[in-house]
Design a protein around this nucleic acid. Sequence first.
DNA 1: ATCGTTATGTGGATGGCGTACACTTTCGAT
DNA 2: ATCGAAAGTGTACGCCATCCACATAACGAT
Lengths: 215, 215
Amino acid sequence: MSPTKARAPKRSTYRHGDLRQALLDAGLELARGGGPDAVVLREATRRAGVVPNAAYRHYASRHELLQAVRSAALAALAVAIENELAGLRRAGNPAARARACLRAVGTGYLRFAQAEPGLLRTAFSVPDDLPGSAVPEKAGSSGLNPFQLLGAALDGLVDAGVLPPERRLGAEYLAWSAVHGFAMLVIDGPLRTLSPPQIRAIGQRLLDMVEKGLT
Amino acid sequence: MSPTKARAPKRSTYRHGDLRQALLDAGLELARGGGPDAVVLREATRRAGVVPNAAYRHYASRHELLQAVRSAALAALAVAIENELAGLRRAGNPAARARACLRAVGTGYLRFAQAEPGLLRTAFSVPDDLPGSAVPEKAGSSGLNPFQLLGAALDGLVDAGVLPPERRLGAEYLAWSAVHGFAMLVIDGPLRTLSPPQIRAIGQRLLDMVEKGLT
DNA sequence: ATCGTTATGTGGATGGCGTACACTTTCGAT
DNA sequence: ATCGAAAGTGTACGCCATCCACATAACGAT
């Protein structure tokens, strides 16, 4: 018979090389497909070609692995936003440019939500226990997290004279809430069944609302 | 010794009476405390004083029970919003009244989010598989679900001449996104650590933004 | 080069979970 | 009184996270 219980994963080297990273990658893949609940420790070790317990040499628990996946997912979101910002054609008018920046942050967020719903859900899933800081630490390639990218865009609006300075404080929360809420309702909420074009259209109107309501 | 394995739950009657409802209640209680993941079938049956498998006479799977809990949680949200609307002092000006209605829907939503975070998270958790309609069916005591209550408030704005009719279509999505997103970020997102007064203040500004951005 | 030390994986076990199948008890219609 | 369906129980399986003891390979001091 073929060995039904191939318990010991076959690997040329006893050492794995970089199991920690391999587990993170596997976890990200799982999260991509099924959100935070799909990040199953045993499955991650399976994919890394290693016995379940090996994971505990690198993460104290499933929650720690999940936390690492969360951070990575958040960083991926930051990268997506940065890409959106990078693809921005620079309009002459500073005010228009500042507005475009804010919109780019929003559309980057929404684009990511549609492209990687599992990762977005994971990034913002509850950390089960950890108190955690008010705002995520992890950063994208530019060293900024999504929240900071949004803040920068808002600063730009103030500099361009579009947003009155007295309305700047806490404005991140307002803009973020609108975009995040829409993303969530679209990903797994009641707006799930809207067609992609509908979603894009409403997304644009949402950004209109934010822009108008904020300034 | 006390019987370590009290397998057969002690009940005077072999029949339970209304196990279906008892399981729903237990599930709601679990969801209240820990969100959708806390709705554990075995624990629900335990609380109902019944063996795990008994649940399958009333729900085909854990997911079906969870779905029932979801509906109940959504109905609870609708009730909370209705209460907020009921407590509204009727201003003379129709326009002001319509605005107050919209605000009441928003504040009811946010109040519920703070009072029952577990239920709100459960109400909007992903239904795992079911396609489901675009908008929840279940209703509060007035027979309307939260989405419909919001729609009614927006209709009122149009009637009062505050909201241009051409902006009415899809306006629910915009308002809902903002409020829902804020609720989510506050419940288990990065805004978790804000103080309740801060939250209330920002919540009001959020509603300002929606009102201004929408009309 | 040798030899511990220690980091890293393995094996085996425990208890919780969802759920399938077969059995038993009770209720209500006949 | 009888019998069939409805509701609960028992047993079992496989999956999960995690604990403990053990094995092995890589590395640094000698």
